[in-house]
Amino acid sequence: MFFGISHLVVPVTQLERSSALWCDVMGFAAVQRGDGFVDIDTGSASLRLLQVQAVEAPVALRLQVGDVLQSYQALLTAGLASRYAPMKTPQLEEMACVTDADGHAITLWRALTEDEWGFVPDLPKQGQWLAEAEDLLKRLLAHVPALFRMLARRKTTRVIEQLAQEAQSPVTRELVIKGYITASAKITRFRLVEPLRAEGINPADYQADFDYE
């Protein structure tokens, strides 16, 4: 029976040098030492640094970080060589890559937030929308924190299209405003006041929607 991968083995020619890189520079913990190996707990996977005379097959590791540039510069300062500097990819990630003394490639990466994408995603709409209505909702959603914006986009679009279906109408600017308000939890609707005002909309005209349960 298979239980899963316990370790990823990384062959190294100088065990203490590699252990210092992972522990002292990167901040991970050595959880076990034995004859010719050190086990490193990276938080998501265990690495076994294994002493060898020569590295025959370098490995490639992807390391998730909070700040790609800062991590990249820290590793360069520690003596690692650059493969490529931080860059944004079509997969909506920021990445950089370095090579350690044994030729192993360490890719540093993080997912880009929606604010960093450089484009506004399409709405997950199914019905007929007037262009001005779609543009308005995209601008209103830009006020939602990026971490929650995808969920808000899906829920708000669905509520607006339900209102349009009930009205037997294409999605209009008026329906967007009503759906934008009622799709939000009542306790948090006060946060919608400023985005609406920024669009020249008087929130007081939609008090019934703000009070909607």
Results as ranks from 00 to 15, higher is better:
Gln91Ile: 12
Thr156Asp: 06
Glu114Lys: 10
Leu112Trp: 15
Pro90Gly: 08
Glu93Tyr: 14
Leu141Phe: 07
Ala105Asn: 14
Ala131Ser: 14
Leu136Gln: 10
Thr89Val: 08
Ala152Lys: 10
Leu108Cys: 14
His104Ser: 12
Gly127Ala: 07
Glu116Ile: 02
Ala111Val: 12
Gly127Asn: 07
Thr99Val: 15
Gln128Val: 01
Leu137Gln: 00
Gly103Lys: 11
Leu130Asn: 09
Glu94Ile: 12
Asp135Trp: 02
Val98Asn: 13
Asp122Ala: 10
Arg158His: 13
Thr113Ile: 06
Pro124Ala: 02
Arg158Ile: 05
Thr156Asn: 01
Ala152Ile: 00
Pro121Lys: 08
Leu140Pro: 01
Val98Glu: 08
Leu136Glu: 00
Gln126Ala: 01
Leu151Cys: 01
Gln91Thr: 15
Glu114Tyr: 06
Pro86Ile: 02
Pro86Glu: 08
Met95Pro: 09
Ala152Ser: 13
Leu140Lys: 03
Pro145Trp: 11
Gln91Val: 04
Glu94Asn: 13
Ala133Gln: 07
Pro124Ser: 04
Ala133Ser: 00
Asp115Trp: 14
Trp129Leu: 04
Ala111Trp: 13
Leu147Tyr: 14
Trp109Phe: 15
Leu92Asn: 15
Asp115Tyr: 10
Ala142Pro: 05
Thr157Val: 03
Phe119Val: 06
Glu116Leu: 14
Gly103Phe: 06
Ala131Asn: 08
Pro121Asn: 05
Arg154Leu: 11
Thr107Cys: 03
Trp109Asp: 07
Val120Glu: 08
Val120Lys: 02
Ala146Thr: 03
Ala96Met: 02
Phe148Cys: 04
Asp115Asn: 09
Ala146Gly: 04
Asp115Val: 03
Gly103Glu: 12
Thr156Ser: 01
Gln128Asn: 11
Lys88His: 15
Glu94Val: 05
Leu136Trp: 08
Gly103Met: 04
Ile106Tyr: 13
Met150Asn: 11
Thr156Glu: 09
Val144Cys: 05
Thr99Leu: 12
Met87Arg: 15
Arg154Thr: 11
Thr99Arg: 15
Pro121Asp: 01
Asp135Gly: 00
Met87Asn: 09
Asp135Lys: 04
Val98Cys: 02
Ala133Val: 00
Lys138Cys: 01
Gly103Ile: 07
Leu130Gly: 03
Arg110Tyr: 15
Asp102His: 04
Thr89His: 07
Glu94His: 13
Asp122Thr: 10
Arg149Tyr: 07
Leu151Ser: 06
Leu136Asn: 08
Phe148Trp: 11
Asp122Cys: 09
Leu137Phe: 03
